[in-house]
């Protein structure tokens, strides 16, 4: 009943959430591909992107009033700022928290602890430097642009959701091409398949790993900006829940599998919103993790399966 009544009204925001989860989940899955490690500091990469977008847009829009085409410009600038912020933090993370350990051939547990430490460091640094309150990003849209842009089956789709979908689809397609068609993509796949052999064949492993972190950071940072632009605001703890959910999405789709992360993210976002519709917000996590367990019981490696080093 809850599904027949206003199904699309829940589906559209769920899809938008799903795109954000997918963008973040790719950061987990890409790093898992090359290192076989979960980068637990990725939620702070996401948060950094949110703050980079916040500062850039609040600084720009403080002076000008957005109107017409300039709105598009602000959104693009915000995404770029978020992506750059996320990319820079992800790169630094790799240099400071991962590479020194890799050079010393540290056990996997050490990487995990190092990532968690970096995560807490970044979290508290942001809280100290940027304040503990949640802060809204200056809206790049004019008043009329918050009205529904177009309708799907009677449900108005706001510009915000449309922006998320467009940005996410562009980034997902670019990533797919990057991994499958470019030299860097070949490197990422080679390292994922067998790092030692790739090294012997002349692939600069450290370089490939650093670039993988940066690519994941670009996606996660842009997602951070888009997340903060909506009703969620930007705060130093904003990364925690979306990070956890995106990690779940990556496992749901098949960790290390790029298309799996996209699929897992979209599914999780939609499932969550429909469980708000049918049950209650306090049951969202119960429903989504129940479905995760069910899927893992049937397919222990996720819906599309764990898949390292093969073009998706």
């Amino acid at each position: 009943m809850c599904l027949t009544h206003n199904f699309w009204g829940f589906f559209v925001p769920g899809l938008a959430n799903g795109f954000l989860y997918a963008l973040i989940a790719l950061g987990y899955t890409l790093v898992y591909g090359v290192l076989q490690l979960i980068n637990f500091a990725h939620s702070e990469v996401f948060m950094s992107g949110g703050f980079a977008g916040l500062f850039t847009l609040n600084w720009l829009i403080g002076k000008h009033h957005p109107a017409g085409m300039s709105s598009v410009g602000y959104v693009v600038i915000g995404c770029v700022a978020g992506a750059v912020g996320g990319g820079v933090v992800a790169y630094l993370l790799e240099r400071v928290a991962y590479r020194p350990l890799r050079r010393r051939h540290a056990p996997k547990l050490a990487f995990l602890i190092s990532a968690i430490g970096a995560s807490y460091f970044l979290l508290n640094l942001a809280g100290k430097e940027f304040g503990r309150d949640s802060r809204p990003i200056a809206q790049p849209f004019t008043q009329t642009q918050t009205d529904p842009l177009f309708k799907i089956f009677g449900t108005g789709v706001s510009l915000y959701y449309a922006v998320i979908a467009v940005v996410a689809i562009i980034m997902l397609v670019m990533l797919d091409r990057l991994v499958n068609k470019t030299r860097l993509g070949q490197g990422i796949r080679a390292v994922a398949q067998d790092a030692d052999t790739a090294g012997l064949m002349g692939v600069d492993i450290n370089r490939v790993i650093a670039q993988t972190f940066i690519v994941g950071g670009l996606l996660g940072g842009a997602a951070g900006f888009l997340y903060g632009l909506g009703p969620a605001n930007v705060s130093y703890t904003m990364g925690f829940t979306p990070g956890l959910k995106a990690f779940t999405a990556a496992v749901l789709g098949g960790i290390g599998n790029i298309r799996g992360a996209m699929l897992g993210g979209l599914l999780l976002g939609i499932i969550e919103n429909l469980s708000v519709a049918c049950i209650s917000p306090s049951w969202v996590d119960v429903v989504s993790f129940f479905i995760l367990v069910l899927v893992l019981l049937v397919r222990p490696t996720g819906i599309l399966g764990e898949r390292l080093g093969r073009s998706a």
Binding site: N6, G9, A232, T237, F240, E272, V276, S282, V284
Partner: peptide, 29 residues
């Protein structure tokens, strides 16, 4: 009546800020 757990980014709750758009749709409906 409905419970929407406070979000991790606001207080030490368990909720996710992304629950609000769906909840808002439900309220509107």
């Amino acid at each position: 009546s409905e419970s929407a757990p406070g979000t991790t980014q606001c207080q030490a709750g368990q909720g996710n800020a992304q629950q609000y758009p769906a909840l808002a749709t439900k309220i509107k409906g």
